[in-house]
Structures are given as C-alpha cells and as structure tokens.
Amino acid sequence: MCLAIPAKIIKINKNLAEVESMGIKKEVDITLVPDAVKGDYVIVHAGFAIQIIDKKEAANIENYFNEYFDGQKH
C-alpha cells in the first residue's frame, strides 16, 4: 500500500492539481508539496502528491511503471 506513482502536473487549482499519469488524468491533493508548479512531476500516493521528482528522471520512472503494471496483468 506504499506503492506510489509518478504523475505530471497539468493544472493547479488551490490545493488540488490535475495530473496525468500513463495517459490517465486525475485530481490529486498538493497540500504536501507547496513548491510544486505546473509541469513538475510528482510522486502520488493515495490521492496526494508527496514529493516532487527530479525532472530529468521522471520519464524513466514512468517507463518502469508502465512495464510494472503491464507485467502484473500476466
């Protein structure tokens, strides 16, 4: 249950942000990452962004998760 997923912030509205992760858009709470801005990648855990990801690395992480979830289906 500590699995956390990387997502990109598309829009911010007060404490909520619209994020995209693996093509899926959803709303997450960004209260815990007050410095986050549009375009940042964040780690999302149970509906909350818990940390901002180093930009260079974000794309790599996403690839891994795609593979991870793909693998889980088999």
Binding site: M1, C2, A4, D29, T31, L32, H45, A46, G47, F48, I50
Partner: peptide, 13 residues
C-alpha cells in the same frame, strides 16, 4: 488510519 510515514502526512492533512 494505517501506514508509515508515507501515509501519515495524508491523515494529518
């Protein structure tokens, strides 16, 4: 409310 430090801030919010 269960979990370690990953989840505790969520409960706090």
């Amino acid at each position: 409310a269960i979990g370690f430090e990953t989840t505790i801030p969520l409960t706090s919010v």
